[in-house]
Design a binder for these strands. Structure first.
Lengths: 101, 101
DNA sequence: TTAATATATGAAAGGATATTCATATATACA
DNA sequence: TGTATATATGAATATCCTTTCATATATTAA
């Protein structure tokens, strides 16, 4: 889908976009994102399901949260994480279609 | 967009998807991809436009090509690079929408 | 063939980064 | 209160990765 004009993407926007893709470019964080695409989960649940330490999960979630890829709601001492919006699910979906073709 | 069932994403597919996002997660490669979204270009043209050495551009393009994010057609000693398919443009576009919201 | 141009490639170094470990915070429960 | 549980955080290290530099390959022109 070539465009007729150069994209108006400034440097700051480009760097943020790069950090966004890089966040999904780590296997651990990507697994977390793909899992959250199925519904909300707690840190411990993700750790158990993926076989990663809760600390590593928490670090990963912070990174995803900084870039607005995930969000969470508090519930007592628990935090239920989910994907932040439809864009994230769409990016994951399109990415999957690409690697599957 | 929560799904009703866990996504059927096997380990191999997940790793390839992670490598795909990681490829777009480097500022240099992302700039190249965004530029190619406007049309095909040669290595030298990308190097001049982005202020990067042709060697660095070539390394970046190889990585993008390995993951089927870009393709090229030969033309004498030149190679005209372009985005590989619509998925790539869609991922870039959705990513931009996300960082802009 | 020789020279020139365009691109690719391998190795190495410097910088970025994910995980671990120890600790901190926050909430719930007794 | 004090204890247990859930999560977060900082520092350190070990690993990964991008760029540079030198060189190689390929194509064109002379």
């Amino acid at each position: 889908m070539p465009l007729s004009t150069p994209p108006a993407v400034d440097q700051k926007e480009t760097l943020r976009l790069a950090r966004t893709f890089a966040a999904l470019g780590d296997p651990t964080r990507l697994k977390i994102a793909l899992t959250l695409a199925t519904g909300e989960m707690r840190v411990q649940g993700l750790a158990d399901l993926l076989g990663i330490s809760p600390s590593a999960v928490s670090h990963a979630l912070r990174r995803l949260k900084d870039l607005a890829l995930v969000r969470h709601r508090a519930d007592g001492q628990n935090r239920w994480y989910s994907l932040d919006d439809g864009h994230v699910a769409a990016i994951l979906q399109t990415g999957l279609e690409h690697v599957r073709e």
